[in-house]
Design a protein around this nucleic acid. Structure first.
Lengths: 177, 177
DNA sequence: ATAGTGTTTCGATATGTTTCTAATCAATTA
DNA sequence: TAATTGATTAGAAACATATCGAAACACTAT
């Protein structure tokens, strides 16, 4: 997931591809690669260290030189593996949320306020999306927006504040985050 | 190889990966994706157009919407294919051409016309460079230009036409492509 | 130790990319 | 035709990153 993106970012650079292609042929060291590619050792080092941190290359010292070599098994997987999100956890969460939402919303309106705290939080968060976090709202306006979803705007408004989704100062409301 | 780098660059972006993962599940359209990812339609459009130009996604209009879909076969190849420079052909070809040219040209003149068809084509293509494809030449002019390289302008002129490098209409010649 | 060689880090600069807002464009419906 | 809705483009701001020179570091050989 995060690592996959990192790997893709590493590979998406011309200089690093050049370095990898050199290492594909044979192990090499900083100065030699720098010379081959007409770049400074500092630049090559920068890239190699980056790739080492990601496990794409390994290095070991030999006399004067730091010999860099490829970690070839990384390149076996098909591209598909790298773009597909492994959402085992995230996905289940999302699925659950979708299930709750489609259960309590009909034709864009909230049919009833869930009793279970967790489900209530999910439907409230959905309504909360209608509020712009960068501005404030008068109570009257808040009520009108909530009314688009459900008649009991008092409960919903109060619960949003209880969940920390909204803050109130005097008669002014503001969405958190 | 240039295209490979472009593809890798396309894939090395979190937002684009998010978009691809949405399209992996089902075709979608700009506004919907923008909403799913909490980004503006302009941003999504920017990414989709980029990916469309690279052939990663396709789009077609349906009523109000531009429906975007994945070009899935792109993701089949292993990563290895994307990092390996495929200069085997290009490079060998270039080397071979250089070898042939340096063998048959001495001091800028063609020493003899190669017998082998493949080599003949290479040296003819070299001489052909002296002709401007955007204009026409009289036969006399063609002969003079070829004479700078070799005495047998008749054979060379005829062979250029045989190889499809030149066309003749009446007494007027024109370089192809 | 000290000089020499190759590597790494640091700070600065230059370049490229993502994202947004606002304006424009294109298709559809009234 | 006008109004609406979604898509796209242009321009600007924000952010990321590749590269270099110079300095610091690590090992080797005298």
């Amino acid at each position: 997931m995060k690592e996959k993106l990192e790997l893709l970012k590493l590979l998406a650079d011309e200089t690093r591809l050049d370095i990898l292609n050199i290492l594909l042929k044979e192990d090499s060291y900083v100065e030699k690669i720098a010379c081959d590619l007409s770049l400074t050792p500092a630049t090559i080092c920068y890239h190699l260290k980056k790739m080492e941190a990601a496990g794409v290359v390994n290095c070991s010292r030999s006399q004067f030189y730091m010999i860099y070599s490829l970690n070839r098994e990384i390149f076996d997987k098909p591209l598909y593996e790298l773009i597909k999100k492994d959402e085992e956890l995230v996905d289940d969460e999302e699925k659950y949320k979708k299930g709750v939402l489609s259960g309590f919303f009909k034709y864009g309106r909230l049919t009833r306020i869930p009793t279970q705290r967790k489900k209530r939080e999910i439907v409230l968060a959905e309504i909360l999306k209608q509020f712009d976090p960068s501005r404030t709202y008068e109570e009257q306006e808040v009520n009108e927006i909530i009314l688009r979803y459900h008649g009991d705007y008092c409960t919903i408004r109060r619960e949003m504040i209880a969940f920390g989704m909204m803050t109130r100062h005097h008669e002014t409301y503001k969405r958190v985050k």
